Amino acid sequence: MSNDIAYPVFCTPDPALALSTARRLVEFGRTEFCEVRAYAELPSVTEVRRVAKGLPQAWFRGWEKPGEFDAVPSDEQPALIFGVQGSALPADPAAYEGLLPVERELDDLPVGSIEDTFITLIGPNAGELNWDSLSWPDAPELDFFGESKHAEVTLLLNTRTRDFDEPAADHTVLVHVRSIDVDGRQLQEPYAHWLAQQVGLTVTGPGQR
């Protein structure tokens, strides 16, 4: 089993510019099989309803404490625990009590189908766009072979980390490569630098797991 590591290559307060920059990387590694995932964390009922109005087909799932509903029969658990499409969200604000933030997610979509709408709707909320099933080419001058399994691009919105634990007023593009750690040194980091350079970017910080 292998893992990826993602390096920041661009940061800007302009979400449209961040998206266009991420797309340059996506196009560099694009295949006929690549897909995009959109994810956001929504901290209030107002934000959930606003985003659901623009994306009624998206799935919304409430936050729960680990084990909170283990002893509750499934037919008695809140619908938001299992996930509800935007068009079927509860109307009563009380239904969201103890379940915020609500996660909003769309998976396995065609590239180009959701990205512009998503960055328009994200507002101040933390979220990400992730493109996977890309294919990075060989870099023979660096003795690196191409990468498919961990060839991804991520656009972090209003956060600096993949864990969403560092809120920000800007947006960061990450390029993913395979993680190969030897004595604390990432052997694939030069490959990430090379990939960024192919589209006029540069690695700007340490890798994120």
Results as ranks from 00 to 15, higher is better:
Trp136Met: 05
Asp183Gly: 13
Val111His: 02
Arg162Tyr: 11
Gln188Lys: 13
Arg160Ile: 06
Leu142Ser: 06
Pro206Trp: 12
Pro124Ser: 14
Ala168Leu: 02
Ile119Leu: 05
Asp92Val: 12
Glu147Leu: 07
Leu157Arg: 05
Ala95Tyr: 15
Gln188Glu: 13
Pro90Phe: 08
Glu115Ser: 01
Asn158Ile: 00
Lys149Met: 03
Ala126Phe: 00
Asp132Gly: 04
Glu189Lys: 07
Leu134Ala: 02
Phe118Leu: 04
Gly112Glu: 04
Glu103Leu: 12
Leu155Gly: 00
Asn130Val: 13
Arg104Pro: 00
Trp131Tyr: 14
Asp165His: 05
Phe144Lys: 00
Tyr191Trp: 07
Val177Met: 09
Thr159Leu: 07
Asp165Pro: 02
Ile114Gly: 02
Val173Ala: 08
Pro124Ala: 02
Asp107Val: 12
Ala168Asp: 07
Asp132Trp: 09
Ser135Met: 14
Phe145Trp: 14
Gly200Val: 13
Arg178Asp: 09
Leu201Tyr: 03
Gln197His: 11
Ala139Thr: 10
Pro110Ser: 09
Pro167Ala: 07
Ile119Gln: 01
Asp170Arg: 01
Tyr191Val: 01
Ala126Lys: 12
Asp183Cys: 10
Ala139Ile: 08
Phe118Arg: 00
Trp194Leu: 00
Thr172Pro: 05
Pro93Met: 12
Asn158Ala: 04
Asp132Ala: 03
Val102Lys: 05
Gly123Glu: 05
Trp194Tyr: 12
Val102Gln: 05
His150Met: 07
Gly200Glu: 04
Pro206His: 15
Leu195Gln: 03
Ala94Asp: 15
Thr117Ser: 11
Leu99Thr: 09
Ser179Gln: 14
Pro90Asn: 12
Thr204Ala: 08
Glu141Trp: 10
Tyr191Leu: 02
Tyr191Met: 10
Asp170Met: 06
Gln186His: 11
Leu195Glu: 06
Asp116His: 04
Thr202His: 08
Ser133Leu: 15
Leu99Asn: 12
Leu106Asp: 12
Pro101Lys: 06
Glu103Arg: 07
His150Phe: 15
Phe144Cys: 08
Asp165Tyr: 06
Ala91Ser: 15
Leu121Met: 02
Gly127Val: 00
Phe118Glu: 04
Glu141Val: 11
Pro93Gly: 11
Thr159Asn: 11
Glu189Pro: 02
Phe144Ala: 00
Asp116Gln: 10
Asp183Pro: 09
Asn130Leu: 14
Gly112Pro: 04
Pro140Gly: 10
Thr202Ser: 08
Phe144Tyr: 00
Ile119Glu: 00
Thr202Arg: 07
